[in-house]
Design a protein around this nucleic acid. Sequence first.
DNA 1: TGACTTTGACAAGAGTTATTGTCAGAATTT
DNA 2: AAATTCTGACAATAACTCTTGTCAAAGTCA
Lengths: 235, 235
Amino acid sequence: MKNRALQQRVYGGVKADLRETERRKKLLTAGLEAFGTRGYAKTNIKTICVLAGLTERYFYESFRNKEDLLSAVYQELVDKQKSDTLKILDEAGNRPLDAASSAIRMFLYGFQENPLKAQTQLFEVMGVSPGIDRQYREAMRVLAEMVKLFLMKAFPGISDDAFRGNIIPTGLAGSIVLISHEWVLGGFVTPLDDIIDKCMDLFIAVGRHIESKPRPGSAQKHRPVHRKLQHNQKR
Amino acid sequence: MKNRALQQRVYGGVKADLRETERRKKLLTAGLEAFGTRGYAKTNIKTICVLAGLTERYFYESFRNKEDLLSAVYQELVDKQKSDTLKILDEAGNRPLDAASSAIRMFLYGFQENPLKAQTQLFEVMGVSPGIDRQYREAMRVLAEMVKLFLMKAFPGISDDAFRGNIIPTGLAGSIVLISHEWVLGGFVTPLDDIIDKCMDLFIAVGRHIESKPRPGSAQKHRPVHRKLQHNQKR
DNA sequence: TGACTTTGACAAGAGTTATTGTCAGAATTT
DNA sequence: AAATTCTGACAATAACTCTTGTCAAAGTCA
């Protein structure tokens, strides 16, 4: 009561703040589990606590309410994807199309491997509240930014104008997201590699097209010669 | 009590079944209003009834529950879009790219003109229930089908293989949808025509690219000569 | 006019949920 | 060992919502 920071008692071998973070972690996992199966709307706090093996009091220790938990779960998923993507981009070397393919694979495989993530990240967060909407929008912005980086690496000739308003990267990101929607709702029956191939078709199509549109105001031109493809068509 | 069909009493100048459909209509409008502003989750039946100027009893006359109403509202929006799109496609004549552009305009303008529709159709329906998920999926399937029809008209050389699994049309439809998301959440600040132009870039990029990939198994080819563009770059 | 139907306002009950509080016992420190 | 703190089980309240029911007034028909 006097000084929380000094009340760092060891319990079960671990200090207080660590125990708290462990509980928080359990709640995040339980939240993902619940949101991904029952759905956000039909999940109540009691259920989350049971899944986490904790009582309600500990829920409010870490989160203000259910939306707060969803927000944290979502942010975790998105942050992980972002860092993974940046790592792939960083290790791309001089094979940018292979890197793009890897990034798409990572994105999709993560959903297939753990459908709870897919359901939560792609569906449950939508239409929950203005706050979560904002978070979703930021996540889309980041995803579009990633797409843009890959496009720039693979198609260095693209003019800045093609990226104006980030509409094109947003659209390309949207392709992948909505293809994921369909894939998830359809129960992942289409082979992963088929999806990746088609996504790469879209990526290359867009990259080439906007690379061949050098000036904003000028008339449509016929396309110039392209450098050799570096994309390895696996399978 | 004996025979409903014969109890077609006139009230306020209209027959019973017509009065009922009018009430239903009021509820649909009120539902759109409520879902589009408060959001589906935070809307209760009382609110809908007040907006409709009716009492709860009449809600249950036309709908089983809130989800049932959402389903009907959504279906109405989607059906309208589909018929509008088919009409544009039907009147396309020999200017398929203009038709595609018109269809995209119609799609986007509908949202801008009535943001309630945008919010409901794009966000509120998601993650509500497995039933609504199925409906959403079907709507996406239809949208992808529309995109495919426009692609076929504008790029007759596209091989069937490029459409296998409908992944590419789904992706292109996804571009438009997610670009809409961003546009809606951002409050429609980007001019409509800018969005349309970029969407057309995507459409043309993809159309050209897959038209130039004639065979499934063959190696990547360089692109053949294209016929003259028919797309009018308005503004 | 009298019988009947439709309508709208409101009541009421059942069910669910969020959130805070209590408390006894276990674990740990001094 | 004694004092203190942590933990988990559960209670309890308040609030909200759905759904059905009642009832009187108004409208319509014969």
